[in-house]
């Protein structure tokens, strides 16, 4: 059997899918207020109720994870802010890699590649953005001065546009791009089963693979 390495632990994968699922519900129930012809779907407010249920999950799930796995969370957060020369290499190679499928052009990437890091950063920023503006609309409706409520809607929409668009990019990059076919390899496997093949780790996250090899060398 082919050798495999763990990329995401079970708890991380559960958080990912719970968070992604709640975001999908939030996205769709928000979209009906965003695109006028869909507006009738929002009548009587049931989409808004669903939006609130999903919002609680969206906000609370990462907090539970943070409380249960403090160390791991901090490592992950540090990861988003740790940028090196391989990240600039990623940006330089981006076009040749993602459009021309030239896999040689990409310098070895860490546990997360630059695109994944940027998305992970955006997820953290937008989580806070959605939470603050959403909380104003939920808890301060009619209490806060109208101008706060007006700009809260505006900012909520701004975060929605940015994150909603990148949500599609994220799905596409993970399971849609010609380079990630077949589906049961790489990104999909790392988040679905938690493990990736050694071959995949070496070719797509070379820097990370080196680190694993080095640390195993030290241990043995």
């Amino acid at each position: 059997m082919q050798q495999e390495v763990e990329k995401y632990s079970k708890s991380t994968r559960i958080l990912h899918w719970v968070h992604a699922g709640s975001f999908a519900v939030l996205f769709l129930t928000g979209l009906v207020l965003f695109i006028p012809p869909l507006g009738t779907l929002a009548q009587d407010g049931w989409s808004r109720l669903l939006h609130r249920v999903a919002a609680v999950i969206f906000v609370v799930a990462p907090l539970i994870y943070l409380g249960m796995y403090w160390e791991k969370s901090m490592t992950a957060i540090r990861e988003a802010f740790t940028w090196g020369k391989e990240d600039f290499g990623w940006m330089k190679a981006g076009y040749r890699y993602y459009f021309q499928c030239d896999e040689e052009a990409m310098p070895p990437q860490g546990h997360m590649n630059t695109g994944q890091k940027m998305w992970w950063l955006l997820v953290m920023v937008s989580w806070a953005g959605f939470l603050i503006t959403g909380a104003v609309m939920w808890f301060a409706k009619t209490l806060a001065p109208p101008v706060f409520l007006q700009w809260a809607v505006f900012l909520h929409d701004l975060v929605f546009i940015g994150t909603g668009v990148m949500f599609f990019v994220h799905i596409y990059m993970s399971v849609g791009h010609p380079l990630v076919h077949p589906l049961r390899e790489g990104a999909w496997n790392s988040m679905f089963r938690g493990k990736v093949s050694v071959h995949y780790a070496r070719t797509h996250h070379g820097k990370w693979f080196e680190e694993i090899v080095r640390s195993q060398g030290k241990n043995s």
Partner: peptide
């Protein structure tokens, strides 16, 4: 009224409250 979703944007934005 049938169409109202209860979002309350009208109240947030009405200049006459």
């Amino acid at each position: 009224k049938d169409l109202c979703s209860g979002c309350g944007y009208c109240r947030d934005f009405c200049p006459f409250d």
